[in-house]
Simulated scan of single mutants.
Amino acid sequence: MDELPAPAVVVLVGAAGSGKTTLRGRLVAGGLDPGTVISLDDLRCEARALDAKAGRPVRPLQDYSFSAVRRAARRCDALLAFGAGYLSDATQLRRRERVPHVRAAAEAGLPSVALLLPALSLDELLARDAARPPDEHVPADVLARHAHRRSLLRPGLLRDEGFDVVREVP
């Protein structure tokens, strides 16, 4: 990836299994502060681990989504309050998931960046999902929706939503 503005609000946009977390790892290896990464998957895992530690029954990871989204929003707000910016590692396949990041960046005086992951076929997403640990599998119907939603996205659409920088990730 070319140099990204820093600080900035960086939003990864792509289906489950399209390489968002791999890209995040590369960006962190390249110098991005891991403390500025907000990952719904990581927050779901943290919530499940807290249930296990407290002796409560653990649920499938997707059952922790509501609390993960709330915790992510609080972390994003806290980072912006310090002018740090953040990287959001989530699918962001719906406009209603992306636009709040654009608005938050503008309010904080930071650039907003969308990194658009490749539109992969459902077969490719299913194959990649099969390689994940069993407790991290994404249901096939969810992957089908992700593949469809991603197929509708183009850089110009993200620019029209207000992103300052839009880059397609090969």
Rank of each mutant, 00 (worst) to 15 (best):
residue 2 D to F: 08
residue 3 E to D: 14
residue 4 L to E: 10
residue 4 L to G: 12
residue 4 L to N: 11
residue 4 L to S: 10
residue 5 P to G: 14
residue 5 P to S: 14
residue 5 P to D: 14
residue 6 A to N: 13
residue 8 A to V: 03
residue 8 A to C: 04
residue 9 V to M: 00
residue 9 V to A: 06
residue 10 V to C: 04
residue 12 L to N: 01
residue 14 G to M: 10
residue 15 A to S: 15
residue 15 A to M: 07
residue 15 A to K: 01
residue 17 G to A: 05
residue 17 G to Q: 05
residue 19 G to M: 11
residue 20 K to G: 02
residue 21 T to I: 12
residue 22 T to V: 13
residue 23 L to A: 09
residue 25 G to M: 06
residue 25 G to D: 11
residue 25 G to C: 07
residue 26 R to K: 11
residue 26 R to L: 12
residue 27 L to G: 11
residue 27 L to F: 09
residue 29 A to G: 08
residue 30 G to P: 02
residue 30 G to M: 06
residue 31 G to Y: 04
residue 32 L to K: 09
residue 32 L to F: 15
residue 32 L to H: 12
residue 34 P to I: 02
residue 34 P to D: 07
residue 34 P to G: 07
residue 34 P to V: 05
residue 35 G to L: 12
residue 36 T to S: 15
residue 37 V to N: 03
residue 37 V to P: 06
residue 37 V to Y: 01
residue 38 I to R: 13
residue 39 S to T: 07
residue 39 S to R: 06
residue 40 L to G: 11
residue 40 L to P: 05
residue 41 D to A: 12
residue 42 D to V: 10
residue 43 L to G: 07
residue 44 R to K: 15
residue 45 C to R: 15
residue 45 C to M: 13
residue 45 C to H: 14
residue 46 E to R: 15
residue 46 E to G: 08
residue 47 A to Y: 01
residue 47 A to R: 02
residue 47 A to D: 05
residue 49 A to I: 02
residue 50 L to C: 13
residue 50 L to Y: 05
